[in-house]
Design a protein around this nucleic acid. Sequence first.
DNA 1: GTCTATAGCCTGATAGAC
DNA 2: GTCTATCAGGCTATAGAC
Lengths: 215, 215
Amino acid sequence: MSSAPNHDAPPRIDRRAQRRLDTIEEIIDIAEALMTEEGVNGLTLSEVARRLGVKPPSLYKYFDSLLDIYDAVFRRGQQANLEIMRAAMAAAAPGLPALTAGLEASCRWSLAHPAITQLMFWRPVPSFEPRPESMAPSSEMVNLQRQALTDAVSLGQLGPGADTDEALFFLSILISGLLGQAMANDPDEPWGRGRFTPLFPLLFNAFTKLYPPSA
Amino acid sequence: MSSAPNHDAPPRIDRRAQRRLDTIEEIIDIAEALMTEEGVNGLTLSEVARRLGVKPPSLYKYFDSLLDIYDAVFRRGQQANLEIMRAAMAAAAPGLPALTAGLEASCRWSLAHPAITQLMFWRPVPSFEPRPESMAPSSEMVNLQRQALTDAVSLGQLGPGADTDEALFFLSILISGLLGQAMANDPDEPWGRGRFTPLFPLLFNAFTKLYPPSA
DNA sequence: GTCTATAGCCTGATAGAC
DNA sequence: GTCTATCAGGCTATAGAC
């Protein structure tokens, strides 16, 4: 109170820094919407600027290039997907229940964010390579899945083969196949409707029969 | 010899018509190469003209628009893929052997033509909608697969559930998942190498265990 | 942080001469 | 069927004033 210029505690982030972060988030929101509407390759600086209500050169105060915006969309998407999956897994019993709950939550999120999902799974922008730190959440997702498979084997829910790279790759084929077919062929159907997403339980049926518990 | 202007039998297609068809094929070849190098969205009239050795306006003598070229690539790809699969199925025993042989041949072809495969499976060019007649081979491929599944059930190679739409959709998830993961993550590996295509037999292992023969 | 102005590209498509 | 010329627009990015 003595020397402080105001009565509030000093904010850890001042107003203008916060406003800057808000603008960055808004740019990423606009970029994602644009990719959803016009295709992943339909992202342009000019249109982002138009929707944000500024002129294109102003965007360079927030991002160094168009590819930098792609990277920001990619990174935020990876982070969000990881947190969704982690939360769903933590709320379920260890092993197979955690795995199915986590992957279903991740699939729901992916289907609701098709542009980011395409950017992450199918690399439709050849000139875009995500930065290593933007890829980090992806490794963490793999780790969570591997741990769940290990738990499932330990708990006797799955056979020993389920705790291998082969099983992990097979799982990724199942999930990305489901998402790809749903997004390409039933783009307007929400999760649980259409021809593909209702088959989600069937995927785990197949997976379990491929690696049945020994007992 | 009396009134004929030359000694050869009259060709069913004259030279200039044949040359025109050759040019059209060459344009499609160039378009596919370009999409492979620069991404499916990297196809431009200007670059096609450059590689063909003409100026862009000349292309309009062969195609009405850029989207027309996309459609030609799409149609020729569908046709080729269908014929590859049909031939492989015909060379194998009916039922499950025909199905696996046909799908493996199709997958090999798809992996060797990633740009067309992306165009067919994942629709990365939102403004491009294939013409109905270009989609026809796709329906025929589905028919071939459905027939093979029916035969497999009749022959006792698979259980009754394998002859359903659900099984067909599940099969498409497996195949498109394998291709998508292989193309995105092991783009330079040929069929049979890398982390995903060696799992092809595993897919049918899972499929068979999901729909086991009753006996 | 915003703008204007501009450089230096690219694109699809058409008109009309030859 | 080829070309030149052109339209009408798009884009990323930078320089520099305010």
